[in-house]
Design a binder for these strands. Structure first.
Length: 288
DNA sequence: AAGAGGCCCTGATAGC
DNA sequence: TGCTATCAGGGCCTCT
């Protein structure tokens, strides 16, 4: 699920709740996530004070006073839920994809604070929790990721330099976190529609103008998604207030056979497959 | 070495 | 209704 904008929203609500708080206890009910949770994670987190919460790419990072970092990736279906007073569930952006209702199954991890807890739920278990024990490990871990589209360093010049020798298609490139991090399948589709570029086009054949559009619209689309509170795909009808609404603004994603939204365009959106991922486009607007 | 595809897993939905 | 097949927002690993 969660691409950069969704993780950013989770980060913002998590920050409000747990920054400067101390974890009392951690309960792990199922260690078999994408990577097996290390045996001593409960001990490493017990009684640790949180000094910062931030996000890199699609990763949530919790930094502790003792210089540890907890790295959380939500995979495809991971959600965090704030649970108060043992049973009462509070509506919160932490339960980004689940309408504020705590699911009954697949609650794998509980992070317990004084008076409330954060529950990690993940049906598919593609998410993971890992601990990095110092700043050096932390920096090394995130070294392998390219800049985020919303970074200042993500410019036409940066892209041009890499793209001219890339033999892969532009959509696969946008999904490769090594060169640009934070874009997932939804936003890759949207960015290429805004840029009027065919997702199958090989990177090395992109014109300067097209590279400029990719740089520009990557920023535009992600910033707009963050502003709208991200995209909520499931159970959206029950979500109120601050929850995501960017799914209402999708131009192509999940719009197979629906009319292209470009003014005066008569085409319908089509669905194709690129590297086993669904790809939506307008063959008229994205000819080249 | 870079790039494409398989695979991890459960649940929702479509089609018969 | 109830089966089976397909697909889903990610990213690591393997093979070519």
């Amino acid at each position: 699920m969660p691409e950069l904008p969704e993780v950013e929203i989770v980060k913002q609500s998590l920050e409000k709740r747990v920054k400067f708080k101390k974890i009392e206890k951690v309960l792990i009910k199922n260690r078999n996530l994408r990577f097996k949770i290390q045996n001593n994670m409960e001990n490493l987190l017990k009684n640790q004070k949180i000094i910062n919460i931030f996000r890199k790419s699609k990763y949530l990072i919790i930094q502790f006073l003792n210089n540890q970092y907890l790295i959380i990736h939500l995979g495809m279906s991971g959600t965090l839920h704030l649970v108060k007073n043992n049973k009462k569930i509070r509506r919160t952006n932490l339960s980004f994809y689940k309408s504020g209702i705590l699911p009954e199954k697949h609650n794998h991890i509980e992070i317990i604070f004084s008076g409330f807890k954060i529950i990690y739920n993940d049906p598919r278990r593609f998410g993971f929790f890992i601990i990095l024990s110092n700043k050096k490990d932390f920096i090394r871990y995130f070294n392998k990721f390219g800049p985020e589209p919303i970074d200042k360093s993500f410019t036409k010049a940066y892209l041009s330099k890499i793209l001219k020798s890339k033999n892969t298609c532009v959509k696969s490139f946008l999904l490769n976190q090594k060169f640009v991090s934070g874009i997932g399948n939804i936003y890759a589709n949207e960015i290429l529609f805004y840029s009027k570029i065919n997702p199958r086009k090989l990177c090395k054949y992109l014109s300067g103008t097209e590279v400029g559009k990719i740089a520009k619209y990557s920023k535009v689309v992600l910033n707009k998604a963050i502003k709208k509170g991200g995209s909520s795909i499931k159970n959206f009808k029950n979500i109120k207030g601050k929850d995501g609404s960017f799914q209402n603004e999708f131009k192509v994603y999940n719009r197979e056979n629906k009319p292209c939204l470009t003014f005066n365009c008569k085409e319908n959106i089509k669905k194709i497959t690129i590297s086993n991922r669904s790809t939506f486009l307008c063959f008229s607007c994205q000819k080249k």
